[in-house]
């Protein structure tokens, strides 16, 4: 009895310890996000108040209102247009490319490796020639210019990931569809896409997030028309002072779309990533 009691006590102690640890970790990771959200709803006084205001007395939207009034919020829209358009294009072209690599052995083994090697290049290495090229073709500060670049940068990743997912589709499923009366396009639509659905979503999310977070090209290649939110945020860091309220509000606007995307596609993400991990 005594031994049982002590074992039970020990187990409770370990459990309590785990909860404390989890709480600490959660605090460590979640607090900065909480602080960001809270600042965006504070008045200037509350932001600079000492001791800090942990929970503001009232939620006020003035910081956001300013962003919309000044037209700064349009940069979030710009990011959304650029990221989603380039994601869709990269997914369509990349999936077809991956299918070709897998099923028709296009370019043998080497082409696939070359494709992924493109992803290893630091963007900064080509920013100068790209800038001159874009000036020449009038692509600076246009949606098209950035969409082309983002698509180009995401393609290797999409091809590489989708290659793994397509390899996992049993060939017999496609052959059966071919014999049953499908064309290659129909096989792609009716067999490959549904079979690789998890992978498609997971890859699309990563592609989207990459374009969403992209900074360096947007910084160099935009002026006023298609400035993205990542570039816009930097405008609030001044030489003399920083506009903390605007930074916070803009950062929240930039976080929410990604948050929604990831939350909706969570179940695909977890499976998709672990599948990719097994494939290597």
């Amino acid at each position: 009895m005594n031994a049982l009691f002590s074992r039970r006590a020990r187990q409770s102690f370990i459990l309590a310890g785990r909860y404390v640890l989890i709480a600490l970790l959660l605090f460590f990771f979640v607090f900065p996000i909480y602080w960001l959200f809270i600042i965006s709803f504070k008045t200037p006084d509350e932001i600079f108040h000492f001791p800090p205001v942990w929970v503001p007395k009232s939620i006020q939207f003035a910081n956001y209102w300013v962003l919309f009034k000044d037209g700064d919020a349009i940069t979030v829209w710009n990011s959304l247009v650029l990221a989603s358009t380039s994601t869709i294009i990269a997914m369509v072209i990349g999936t077809m490319g991956a299918y070709s690599l897998v099923r028709f052995k296009t370019g043998g083994e080497n082409l696939a490796v070359w494709v992924i090697s493109q992803r290893l290049m630091p963007p900064i290495a080509i920013i100068f020639p790209v800038f001159l090229l874009y000036v020449y073709f009038g692509l600076v500060d246009t949606y098209l210019g950035l969409i082309i670049l983002y698509t180009a940068f995401n393609l290797p990743y999409v091809i590489w990931m989708m290659r793994g997912y397509i390899e996992d589709i049993p060939l017999e499923l496609e052959e059966s569809a071919l014999v049953d009366g499908c064309t290659r396009w129909e096989v792609l639509r009716k067999v490959v896409f549904p079979m690789a659905r998890t992978g498609l979503f997971a890859t699309a999310v990563f592609t989207f997030v990459f374009s969403w977070n992209e900074f360096i090209f947007a910084f160099v290649l935009t002026r006023t028309e298609v400035v993205t939110y990542t570039v816009q945020v930097t405008h609030y860091f001044g030489g003399q002072s920083n506009f903390w309220a605007k930074i916070a509000a803009m950062s929240v606007l930039g976080t929410v779309p990604v948050f929604i995307t990831v939350a909706t596609l969570q179940r695909f993400l977890v499976r998709g990533i672990s599948m990719g991990a097994v494939k290597g």
């Binding site: 017999e172 067999v191 549904p194 659905r197």
Partner: peptide, 11 residues
């Protein structure tokens, strides 16, 4: 054609 692994569409 009938395949060895049945080739049924799981979805």
């Amino acid at each position: 054609m009938v395949f060895q692994n049945y080739a049924l569409y799981p979805y």
